[in-house]
Write a protein that binds this DNA or RNA. Structure first.
Length: 782
DNA sequence: AAGCGCTAGCTTTTT
DNA sequence: GCTAGCGCTT
């Protein structure tokens, strides 16, 4: 055991570690050693004789939990660290729900529906209710329901809430309440919970069953929550309930790094901790150990421009470091080429390894160009997130079979597998089955299982009855097999019997080969999982254990061995990580900040915090790049530098190439002086600043420079002279032409000047709402 | 019932 | 540039 771990902490860190009793809030600036505090705090608790069994630590990713456990193991010995409860909210409470969910009528082997499953259920519901799928968009509706759930508004509560009902009526969605009810019913009947349910149902149990609450309050005498600024209301209530007995609650976070408001995170949870717990001790950690002075100070300057924040002063004793390099690309490919070349050069000149580099971006779609450039250079890289392994069709197919074995009420899994690989059970049959199951109020599987009994009344012929029967028998055979064989053996057998592997083997296209490889990888990972769990004393080598693992695996979690590769990921995924050299790519208006987030100050401030998070990932060197044009939606569009670049003082910046486009001065779009002399950074900035930009989101006071007129260069550089005037000068009643929808009349204009939408009635396409910044409109008659 | 080809809409970010 | 969903053909 490590003896002197307290000596490894600075004063505020040590105080936070030693304050084990009562509520504690650690406000940890970027790079200030927050993980170190959490780790040593737990080690300290264990050292003081607290049973690991009584400690609950909620982390942001499962990977963070694993790493922390490992580090604690170094300090206090592995065996002691083993029984700690550590993980994400979702995984910890899923585990608790395996035990407690039957109280609410769920099976303990409930399925966890991911986003895709949820969308698929929702699409069916909207369809069955005969609603217009353009008004009731499955994803949007689910987003709304997610809001309800995260604020503990149950179906009943919704129907008693006039304000919500009215809001949905206003939004032209009067059936929202019915859809909500149908969705919840459907999930319940399928024995399934979505991500939000894991938290909502936990809350429900803790509220409705005081003895269960008491059990976990006694169990979790010490609670720690990392990234507290990103907890939503539902999570907040769980923590509050569990901690209310002993109040040994330590939350760690940084309001400046709150970047998940879009999924319900409530920054007020951290801002009002002191009101919730008046006796709380506060420990601000302000010394940054991660980054150079240049990076720390530039980051400070960025975040200062947000109104909503706790005062703090992050500083560092590290070296002053290089200025932030800025590069302006001519295209996304050029931007990517520059990044790849810098990585190449730095690797050689500074003896760095690929894994020392990270390229961060706002949207997953940006990875494509970057990947290509890295490939051309022969640089090894790794993309996190995006379409993850478990979202691939071939994997979901395989997993659907596995899910069905565990929970035969899982309707999504049944529908996915019943005719894949094809066994002659088509849409017509499935529709009949769905109707009949509903009529008889039985699950789809029990209907299929007893199809011989029902077939005549449903109108299913003998041939199809046999097929259905065989399918049910096959599933049941695997279920039986699961009792005597391990998960890997059963899955392997299943892959063979269903012809799933063979179907893939026949496909010799590159995509087909890669699909087969993926399935083989899944089988390998099952084997690995089984072996690993069998070695553990309290291992869970069950199929449901494996399924839970993959349903709740985060994109940051999956880690390959020996991955000395350049890291590509969204800024969101980079939270909590650090790299010697960081590139922030795509710093353009409408991309970073995102087009969807520039309408309110709150949204814009979240984007700015995101930018802050991105920059503070860097230890030694940060690059920021943007491009004047970019492939988006299959087209080349013109881009403007991000307003965030303007917000950084020139003292921190090193403009790498200054061949700056002519902008706002004539109608030539790009080109012009691309190959001409490079103007200085000064003249560039002056030129941009000389044009005042009406920005409704701008803080009225403060030392921020007036925002240059960046925005509405029209997407179509072809739309020639004064496209901006056209866009903004559009009037109701004008006749316009759109290159896809044809001729139409402007009916209405809505929104901010910079984000104007037009309702246009097209002769042939009907009424459409178009974003003027993007719509390709030509006015033909005023 | 299955397979193919076309089109509409699309991306913010994720447990 | 991609993919989900639709309609047409076999």
């Amino acid at each position: 055991m490590e003896e002197n771990y307290l000596d490894k902490l600075n004063e505020p860190q040590r105080l936070a570690v030693e304050a084990t009793e009562g509520p504690v809030m650690v406000i940890a600036g970027a790079g200030s050693g927050k993980t170190r505090v959490l780790t040593y705090r737990i080690a300290h608790l264990l050292n003081k004789g607290v049973d690991a069994f009584n400690i609950l630590s909620l982390t942001f990713t499962n990977k963070a939990a694993r790493e922390m456990k490992e580090r604690i193991g170094y300090v206090v010995g592995e065996s002691n660290a083993k029984s700690l409860w550590m993980g994400t909210f979702h995984s910890v409470f899923a585990r608790i729900l395996r035990v407690e969910a039957p109280l609410l009528g769920y099976p303990s082997d409930f399925t966890i529906y991911d986003q895709q499953d949820a969308v698929s259920v929702m699409t069916k519901i909207i369809n069955e209710m005969n609603l217009d799928k353009d008004i009731y968009k499955a994803k949007q509706v689910l987003g709304r329901i997610s809001q309800f759930k995260n604020n503990l508004i149950t179906v009943r509560a919704y129907h008693n809430n006039q304000a919500l009902i009215e809001a949905d009526n206003e939004a032209m969605k009067p059936r929202m309440g019915d859809i909500y009810r149908a969705y919840v019913d459907r999930c319940f009947k399928s024995g399934a919970m979505d991500f939000d349910d894991l938290l909502l149902r936990t809350n429900e149990i803790l509220t409705r069953f005081p003895e269960v609450l008491a059990k976990y309050q006694e169990r979790f005498k010490y609670i720690m929550v990392d990234e507290y600024q990103d907890t939503n209301h539902s999570q907040y209530l769980i923590v509050k309930a569990l901690a209310s007995r002993y109040e040994n609650l330590c939350v760690v976070g940084d309001d400046a790094q709150s970047i998940y408001a879009f999924r319900g995170a409530n920054i007020r949870n951290i801002l009002s901790f002191k009101q919730d717990y008046p006796d709380a001790k506060l420990y601000p950690l302000e010394q940054n150990y991660r980054s150079t002075q240049m990076i720390v100070e530039a980051a400070n300057q960025i975040i200062k421009q947000n109104q909503d924040q706790l005062e703090k002063n992050v500083w560092t004793a590290n070296e002053s470091g290089e200025k932030i390099a800025i590069y302006r690309g001519l295209s996304d490919a050029d931007e990517a080429r520059f990044i790849a070349s810098q990585i190449w050069e730095r690797q050689i000149s500074e003896h760095l390894q690929p894994k020392d580099f990270a390229i961060l971006y706002r949207t997953n779609a940006q990875s494509r160009a970057l990947e290509e450039a890295l490939r051309k250079r022969g640089i090894q890289y790794r993309v996190f997130g995006g379409t993850s392994f478990y979202q691939r069709k071939e994997i979901k197919d395989m997993v659907a079979y596995m899910r069905l074995l565990i929970n035969q009420n899982d309707e999504e899994a049944l529908l996915r597998t019943i005719n894949y690989p094809a066994r002659g059970i088509g849409q017509t049959t499935i529709s009949k089955l769905l109707v009949a199951a509903d009529q008889h109020q039985i699950s789809l599987f029990s209907l299929v299982e007893n199809i011989a009994m029902y077939a005549p009344t449903i109108g299913i012929n003998a041939g199809t009855t046999t097929k259905l029967n065989n399918y049910a028998l096959m599933i049941k055979r695997f279920q039986v097999m699961l009792k005597s064989h391990d998960v890997y053996e059963v899955t392997m057998e299943m892959a063979k019997t269903t012809q799933l592997l063979n179907a893939l083997k026949e496909d010799s296209t590159p995509e087909g080969v890669s699909r087969l490889e993926n399935v083989q990888e899944l089988l390998n990972s099952i084997q690995g999982y089984v072996e690993e769990q069998q070695q553990l004393e309290d291992g869970d080598a069950s199929l449901s254990g494996f399924l839970e693992n993959i349903a709740l695996a985060t994109d940051a979690d999956n880690e390959e061995e020996d991955d000395n590769k350049v890291n590509l990921m969204t800024v969101h995924l980079a939270k909590g990580l650090e790299f010697p050299i960081v590139f922030i790519a795509g710093l353009e208006e409408n991309l970073f900040p995102s087009m969807m987030s520039v309408n309110t100050r709150a949204e814009l401030e979240e984007e700015r915090r995101l930018f802050y998070v991105a920059l503070t990932r860097a230890e030694k060197v940060a690059y920021m790049t943007y491009s004047v044009s970019r492939f988006r939606w299959g087209k080349i569009i013109d881009c403007e530098p991000s307003r965030f670049l303007e917000e950084i003082d020139d003292d921190f910046l090193d403009w790498k190439n200054l061949n700056i486009p002519v902008r706002n001065s004539n109608n030539s779009g790009l080109s012009a002086d691309l190959f001409g002399d490079e103007p200085s950074a000064e003249s560039y900035k002056q030129r941009e600043k000389s044009v005042a930009r009406p920005n409704p989101n701008q803080r009225p006071s403060g030392n921020v420079q007036p925002r240059p007129n960046f925005k509405p260069v029209n997407q179509t550089s072809s739309s020639s002279a004064g496209s901006q005037e056209n866009a903004l000068g559009l009037k109701v009643g004008q006749v316009v032409v759109h290159d896809r929808f044809g001729r139409g009349v402007v009916r209405d204009l809505q929104g901010e000047p910079n984000d104007m939408k037009a309702i246009i009635h097209f002769d042939n396409a009907g009424e459409k709402k178009l974003l003027l910044n993007f719509a390709k409109l030509k006015i033909i008659r005023s």
